[in-house]
Design a protein around this nucleic acid. Structure first.
Length: 468
RNA sequence: GCUCCGGUAGUAUAGUCCGGCCAAGUAUACUGGCCUCUCGAGCCAGGGACCCGGGUUCAAAUCCCGGCCGGAGCACCA
């Protein structure tokens, strides 16, 4: 079994691409086959050099490892040969009608005069496409069926003229094949046995096989699956570009997006993405999974690895009285041995104001890792008095930081789409103080801020929230 | 509009091809309880679904017909 993942190098990969790539790879693995990464770079107007590398990087991070990496643009000459064969067989013709005419004829199901021209004329015009004609003056079309109910069969375009440099080939070619022509031939030539693609291509199956049959080439098995949508997210390249232009989001790795780069920034593990994709499966059912599904998988994976740290939002200064020790030692994890950190007990501590407000004067509660305290003054500078170390499960427990704690920001991505509308306020910034042991951790580490959630450290003063 | 493809709990899926073991399994979410130095994890329990209508059959989530709803395609993009 040989499968292939054919992204166009015109943007960053998102979780929808991950679905295709992972399914392709898993199928090949299951049958001890091969998996090909093919850059579908037949449109020099869209392909950009940076994306070839970016896509490889992202796939590598995802843990998807192709055995073969190739570009459709490496085989343009072969595709020219097949085009010529088709013309010689009278199965393709050069159309010199105006684009508008072609369009309206297609809608009406009318054949144009070019379709009736002789093979020799077509061959001559085909040659002229390389030198004489310019863009929009001539295209090579497949002789399908202008009356077919399947509009993909109404003499689709096989080659068009594009006078723009290609990121890999420069000005070497100006006649470029379309997806509809390049894909079946490449698949067949590459030995692809099972070509998987998303549902919106279903109507093109007939064309795919017609081209292969016309050329006498081996026919792979075509399989389609539904496109992945995520609740509250935007995957469309076009729409993301608009959002960036409008300044609503910052970049392609904005944590509100579902690009692989964004997921990585938030602390999603590749294993979680894979498990999630496999749980979704390959059916044609249109579904819109919620983030809960992937979050719970990711949580299971990172729960064991994430150090627990105290981050206090909306801090309020509170005086601590009668504490007998100068420093305490607190484990990084409740049940895994991830080490511990020393915390200096300063005269004043900081609590979350929301926590403090819930307590009444004389209430007893516990400062996690430190001990039990009683609130003996609530106004002005609140004061708590130490009352002992012994654990009492009935006591409410809160987290806290000391005076050496550092200013810190957590970026919390919310749904970018809410009730069908773009939510402009979808990136919440929560400011607060974090214990200074954050300095010992590395950028990229996943932590759990106690009673807050899992976050990935982005800098020594900033983290991005993944999920609860 | 025409054509094609879908429709199982709130969400995502298993089961549909080859009808019976499905008074429908699992995950997630939710609710309650236990446990816990986190609002995290873990454990236990609970409610919750076969789009509708006909037909075939001893038997239908599964096969057939009709309808309804949803999505996609109709480019010199992929």
């Amino acid at each position: 079994m040989i499968t292939r993942f054919p992204p166009e190098p015109s943007g960053y990969l998102h979780i929808g691409h991950a679905k295709a790539a992972i399914i392709d790879e898993e199928y090949a693995k299951m049958y001890n086959g091969k998996f090909i990464l093919r850059f579908d770079d037949t449109n020099p107007e869209k392909a950009k050099l940076e994306f070839y590398e970016a896509i490889k990087e992202d796939l590598n991070w995802l843990g998807v490892k192709p055995q073969i990496i190739e570009n459709t643009s490496d085989d343009i000459e072969k595709l020219y040969d097949y085009a010529r064969k088709l013309i010689e067989k009278g199965l393709a013709y050069v159309c010199i009608c105006k684009p508008e005419t072609i369009k309206s004829n297609r809608i009406k199901g009318i054949e144009c005069n070019c379709r009736a021209s002789k093979v020799e004329d077509n061959l001559e015009k085909w040659e002229k496409m390389f030198k004489v004609f310019s863009k929009n003056e001539a295209i090579l079309r497949f002789k399908g069926d202008m009356k077919s109910l399947n509009t993909a069969m109404r003499d689709p375009t096989l080659f068009r003229i594009l006078d723009i440099p290609h990121p890999l080939k420069g000005y070497k070619y100006r006649v470029w094949p379309t997806y509809d022509f390049a894909t079946p031939i490449k698949d067949s030539l590459d030995g692809v046995t099972h070509a998987l693609r998303t549902k919106e291509y279903e109507l093109r199956d007939e064309l795919y096989f017609s081209i292969l049959r016309a050329l006498g080439l081996r026919e792979p098995i075509l399989l389609e699956f539904s496109r992945l949508e995520m609740k509250g997210s935007i995957l469309s390249k076009r729409k993301i570009r608009e959002l960036i232009q409008q300044g609503i989001i910052e970049s392609w790795d904005d944590p509100r997006l579902a690009t692989l780069r964004a997921l990585r920034r938030r602390g999603y593990f590749p294993e979680a993405i894979r498990e999630f994709i496999l749980s979704i499966g390959v059916s044609k059912v249109e579904s819109e999974p919620t983030w809960d599904l992937i979050n719970s998988i990711n949580r299971r994976i990172i729960d064991a690895k994430a150090k627990r740290l105290f981050f206090v939002s909306n801090p309020i200064k509170v005086k601590l009285e009668s504490f007998p020790k100068e420093r305490i030692s607190v484990n990084y994890h409740p049940d895994r041995d991830l080490g511990k950190r020393e915390i200096k007990i300063t005269q004043n501590l900081f609590f979350e104001i929301e926590d403090l407000e819930k307590f009444n004067l004389d209430d007893k509660f516990r400062l996690m890792g430190l001990g039990n305290v009683r609130l003996i003054q609530k106004e002005d500078l609140p004061i708590v008095k130490f009352e002992g170390f012994e654990l009492d499960h009935r006591l409410k427990k809160i987290h806290w930081v000391n005076e050496d704690s550092l200013p810190f920001e957590v970026f919390v991505p919310l749904n970018l789409v809410q009730d069908g509308e773009i939510n402009r306020d979808s990136l919440k910034v929560i400011r607060g103080k974090v214990e200074d042991s954050i300095k010992k951790l590395n950028v990229g580490e996943i932590v759990q801020f106690v009673r807050f959630g899992f976050c990935r450290i982005e800098a020594n003063n900033k983290a991005i929230f993944a999920h609860k």
